[in-house]
Design a protein around this nucleic acid. Sequence first.
DNA 1: TCAATAGTGTCTATAAGACAATATGGT
DNA 2: ACCATATTGTCTTATAGACACTATTGA
Lengths: 220, 220
Amino acid sequence: MKNSLTAPPIVTVDAVLLTIAGNELCVALHKREAAPFAGHWALPGGFIHTQEDDSAKAAAARVLRDKVDVQSPYLEEFGSYSGPVRDPRGWSLTLVYYALVPVVSARITLFPVNRLPNLPFDHGQIVSAVVERVRSKASYSSLPVHLCPEEFTIAQLHAAYELVLGERINMANFRRKLADLDLLEPVSGLLRSAGRSRPSQVYVVRKKYRDRLSVRDRGL
Amino acid sequence: MKNSLTAPPIVTVDAVLLTIAGNELCVALHKREAAPFAGHWALPGGFIHTQEDDSAKAAAARVLRDKVDVQSPYLEEFGSYSGPVRDPRGWSLTLVYYALVPVVSARITLFPVNRLPNLPFDHGQIVSAVVERVRSKASYSSLPVHLCPEEFTIAQLHAAYELVLGERINMANFRRKLADLDLLEPVSGLLRSAGRSRPSQVYVVRKKYRDRLSVRDRGL
DNA sequence: TCAATAGTGTCTATAAGACAATATGGT
DNA sequence: ACCATATTGTCTTATAGACACTATTGA
């Protein structure tokens, strides 16, 4: 056992919380309280608490609850970042999770993903990679519904897709493909008026897709 | 710092090494030498050696080198498995990597993924999930080329795809889509005869795709 | 009734899948 | 010449994208 003396890595979880604010995709950052980089904006993260966390994912959910006040968001594992130099404390590994939520409490500080401050560790790189993954998944799945509130109109969802994908989507085709997804359930009798135009049907996500994605074979 | 006394998790990497043998997709297992489950077949894995490994991925590559004698395979991160009960030693987290190789040395023990023995920890579940991911990626990317040797014919690659996907693929359409991938480079002048039929062109993977996948928008 | 957005219908271009036809080296 | 497999061509059908049309409410 020649390596039994090797120091174990520092292991943390970090969360990339995404939401829409001011017509932009934004990420929630948290001002670090402890060293290293105390006082800097960074991804909310922390150590796994083996006494209370049932999994790494549960640890990420706890971090989001405690540090940015978010309850049970859509939460998925992204991947790991590791190595000897990314953390000044030594060899470290962080498991990155990403979360999507419709709204955040006013106390949370959001930054548009396209105009981030310099972030410590490799957090800037992590946010970019997560946004890229979210864009990619949006192109063939129901992922962006998690940026909409519980009840929403197709126009709202359409806007969320356009914002995430960064391009215009033809509404007629969007509706057709959305129907294929079998994702939405109309809230019977509930319409919503905006301005002086025809009101639109309000929908909710079908129960079976509350915690899973609905996926299409071919894009959008 | 109320949680400073929490024990840290046990952190390991495990590798799912896939290859084709006997016309089946197979996974390499390794007989565990140390407790727990000494003597049982399990995924090759181990601790990260912070003195020598530059990343978790490098640790997985080292494990494959040391335990199953495989050099520089196609290697990707799969995801993590964690929790208080999956390892009898306590709260543990393993980062799973998967690797694809064309051949393995005769000393390695392979098991068809459809007929595995009972595996310790959650390794059975991990193998299933990885195979599912590999199937899924095969359906829109060049992933299965890594199951072929350096030089190969289209018929060979076609067979690898059929084996991974578990279904017949029309050869004419396969060729057309393969051409779209811009993946292959013919080895000029090199043909290969098999039996008494027309010999086939031999190809290699273009340099740019040796370590990356080539991906198509729509399937296959 | 008009402005404005919701929602539907339809035409066209493109890619997928099936299948037939042709090519070629070994025997 | 002929067998077997490689490779190419083409026909049919499904889907994507563009765009025009109809529906419905509030002002």
